[in-house]
Design a protein around this nucleic acid. Sequence first.
RNA 1: GCCCGGGUGGCGAAAGUGGUAGACGCAAGGGACUUAAAAUCCCUUGGGGGCAACCCCAUGCAGGUUCGAGUCCUGCCCCGGGCACCA
Length: 805
Amino acid sequence: MSHAPVYDPQEVETRWQQRWTERHTNEPELDRPARPFYNLMMFPYPSAEGLHVGNMFAFTGADIYGRFQRLQGYDVFEPIGFDAFGIHSENYALAVGTNPAQLIPRNIDTFRRQLRRFGGMFDWRHELSTTDPAYYKWTQWLFLQLFKANLAYKKRAAVNWCPKDKTVLANEQVINGRCERCDTPVEQRSLDQWFFRITDYAERLLRNLDTLDWSESTLALQRNWIGRSEGAELVFTTPAGQAITVFTTRPDTVFGATYLVLAPEHPLVEALTAGEQRAAVRAYQREVQSRDVVARRVGEKVKTGVFLGSYARNPATGEAVPVWIADYVLMEYGTGAIMAVPAHDERDHAFATQFGLPIRQVVQVEGEQGAALPSVTEDGVLMNSGRFDGLACREGGKRIVAWLAEQQVGTPRVQYRLHDWCISRQRYWGPPIPIIYCDRCGPVPVPERDLPVLLPPIEDFRPDDSGVSPLARHTEWYNVPCPHCGSPGRRETDVSDTFLDSSWYFLRYPSTEFADRPFDPARTRTWLPVTSYIGGNEHAVLHLLYSRFITMVLKEQGHVAFEEPFPKLRAHGLIVKDGAKMSKSRGNVVIPDAYIKQWGADTFRMYLMFLGPFQEGGDFRDEGITGVRRFLEKVWVLAHDAAGQADARPPEAVERKLHQTIRKVTGDTATLNYNTAIAAMMEYVNVLREHGAGSGSSVRPLVLMLAPYAPHLAEELWSLLGGGDRSVFEERWPAYDEGLAQAGDVEIAVQVNGKLRARLQLPRGASQDDVVALALADAGVKKFVDGNPLRKIVYVQDRLVNLVV
RNA sequence: GCCCGGGUGGCGAAAGUGGUAGACGCAAGGGACUUAAAAUCCCUUGGGGGCAACCCCAUGCAGGUUCGAGUCCUGCCCCGGGCACCA
């Protein structure tokens, strides 16, 4: 009969959260840590709705890992902050008609309260927000470093434009080619925008991936995004001598190139258009432009295009092939021009069929017959290709490029899908790009001593029809003297992309108290690169790629000593609701507050982790939560009972299970298999209860193992079991003894012809002869052996024996 | 279309290198305690057959390798996520 008091999670949890704050439990020594461990999780964007279950799932998983490492004896630094700039905040602010500068602090307050309540091991001394001038001063500084290194440049690029709202739209604000607010069809506009030369680093970004300990899924996403392809640039020449350079990954098929297609924006279009085609070409260019940036890509794949009225010479065949423009060729990739091989490319085939262009087969694939078959495989043999006939595609391609290179009309070439990073946003809610335009000096960087360029607190932050940021209306702010020559200048009015804010926040955390430097060299040496990064694959490409790029640049400039910020990264799974991603529009977003109130943070944390494998995610259903709560109550009672008893050595069966459990939980926690670690602890509790109850020596290790998962409860029970005033997180993770974990008896499966027929309970280490003899003596086995001679015996020590007859 | 994950009981899920499928939990059914209910505790629970001890069938589908396949190989189907006219 237990005399344990009632488990009241609210009371226990608030009490321990207070103590953690008072005693600075979660604040490691940053300057002289013995064993630094930087435990990073992806900082949230503080939405008005508050932290949702998806955030909590991610943070809990990362927090368990941090707490586990702390119990291993590391000085764990687990910071948190807020990614509070950006279009989401701004759109919400527009919707409610309040300046985001007023809204964001409120949202952050809510998040801070929720993050404390769930029991994260956060070092709040080092909280940061990207909207804090003390932070974005250094975001602007970062821009200046790239500018000075000639890695930032300005270029005209298309943006989405809503003609009714007269504003620039982000891609995510365009729904089916229409403005998400007013449903007006969106157009393209060309604006001068700032870009970072991330493509200069494409090869390094790709190659380094092989050295990183990352989730396979994240690596794959990043490799695809960088999108390396090998091919060649080939030159087609017009009778007038104009060279049209195309990029192809299949130079082996050049003999089948029966026409050329340029992107409608290609600079040569004007010069290549014959007089009689002028009107049609203009009309087509206008039509393409009238579509938004998104529709150009995801629109129907019906091929459209116009003949320019001119021809160019195929460098391989010497024949004149017609030159077209079509929107299926993109200016941003390759050279903006392609040679079309309709016999072996689906898109070219569709286009050629539609416009009656010739199709010539140049690859024969074994087993495939017929000239009209568009085969894109590489394991074919060349045909209709002059002296290259009969060569395998790969080999033939190489020789054709070499041959064309001799004539100066071919070069091997590697292409990346990755584009330069456009960081300009014609918006209000971001860090102003620190550039001043001067008529005499051109674009002049704001001197570092003048940073930050403060975002002015303006009344009307609505984007307007000028196509420039609302900041342009703030004349006091906008008009400044040129830092070079002092003549009247104008500020850059675009702000930078939020991804720039988040591309370096991990460098800032250990150094938040330094106002005069972005990151302190000594602190950075101690704490970086990040020891463990846990986050979702929604950031697999943009954030994780930009952070790597920025770190490479900082390394080159001597600001940091490493070029990969996250040597170890694990992607967690997605929490879905009723089989679908949670989103405001679906109305299936789960807010954790009510669950924490009803069940307590410890129960809710464990429930989220018990739902399924952390790295796979799962469907949120609240039915199972009661099982976790029951488990914690059992632990509560066991600990209270044990606290009142003499500390006896547990019975053998309990001791064995204990050591097996420590082994299992240690391994599973280290590999983020939290669901099975929890199951193992449940099994152990079941065994303890079967043996009546536990003593201190059998319950204390359980409390330690539970601590990362249910930190408040563990603290409470640890102090009850003699921990005194010390936090359980000052203790060490329990060790297991392999000998004690080994079972005395084992169950050996007996199979006849691979089918299970009996099980034998035997002492560990029984010999094959003994096992076979005992197996043959078993009535059930005898029946199936049926007097036949044994043809073969398969014996696996302490596991099974298979008798083959 | 391409690239990643997945498909196992009523449900969430377990099964180091091929070796006793379904641990752990939920739900459900039965029982104990109770005036009663809740809570708690005990038992049952993949499907089928048999009074039984046992037997047969079962890890998306179809083949294959093996003494033995949820696990490996080949070809499909379905679901989730990412990219998407990238030449």
